[in-house]
């Protein structure tokens, strides 16, 4: 028996004026599952992320989330004028959690940065704050929009480890929106591919990695 889905998207259509950004997208994330969403720039990945977070109104279709969903938006999107501790505290707006010590246990580096202004941190540190801020809402499912974008590979690897650890230890479900397919396939067992607002293919990561079309577009040639 497959576990119940925490995120279920059915025939989702999102339009900006006359332009259709998402066209009948259907996908699901099961409890405790890590799923990847691949796609080139402008495919509608961030639109999907915003629709999942309830920040966009769909033109039609449904988005069902069981439990609490947190979004790590593309480009971090911190509050640059506020301290790291304040950024984290505001992450608890929905959950009512004000004390970030539980997040410091998971990401000890943040405790050292607590009093720094978020705007002056490095990209990797900012991504970690965004990660911590999302955890403050005690999510059941985490949507990560471009974890690796603009970060050094070792920084990305560190964050990915944390993500995998949270998934294993707490059963946190993850939808990882990525351009870096190698990272996505490594972390997630299952993946969707979005192009021009439509899902073009989906399946097990291993199978997709072997698909010459996917490999050619996202892995820069066949995977070995």
């Amino acid at each position: 028996m497959t576990p119940a889905p925490v995120v279920e998207v059915t025939d989702l259509v999102v339009a900006y004026g006359a332009a259709t950004a998402l066209d009948r997208v259907t996908l699901s994330v099961a409890e405790g599952e890590m799923v990847a969403l691949l796609g080139p720039n402008g495919a509608g990945k961030s639109t999907l992320a915003n629709a999942l977070a309830g920040l966009l109104r769909p033109a039609s279709g449904t988005v069902t989330v069981r439990g609490r969903l947190a979004l790590i938006p593309e480009g971090r999107q911190l509050f640059p004028d506020l301290s790291v501790a304040d950024n984290l505290a505001l992450g608890g707006w929905r959950s009512g959690v004000r004390d970030p010590s539980a997040v410091y246990d998971v990401l000890p580096r943040l405790a050292e940065l607590a009093d720094r202004r978020a705007g002056v941190l490095s990209g990797g540190e900012q991504q970690m704050v965004a990660f911590g801020r999302a955890l403050m809402s005690r999510p059941d499912v985490l949507v990560v929009d471009e974890l690796s974008l603009g970060l050094a590979p070792n920084v990305t690897a560190g964050l990915a480890r944390h993500l995998a650890e949270l998934n294993r230890a707490r059963g946190l479900a993850v939808l990882l929106i990525e351009q870096n397919a190698r990272l996505a396939f490594e972390l997630c067992r299952r993946a969707y591919v979005l192009e021009s607002g439509r899902l073009v293919t989906e399946g097990e990561s291993a199978a997709l990695a072997g698909d010459p079309r996917v490999a050619g577009a996202y892995l820069g040639g066949a995977i070995t």
């Binding site: 977070a53 506020l82 505001l90 929905r94 809402s137």
Partner: peptide, 22 residues
């Protein structure tokens, strides 16, 4: 205060404020 910081957050980055649910 928490409320005051939430107001500053709206000024600082309205999109992010919506992301955390403000």
């Amino acid at each position: 205060t928490y409320l005051g910081k939430a107001l500053t957050a709206c000024a600082s980055n309205p999109y992010a404020a919506r992301v955390v649910g403000i």
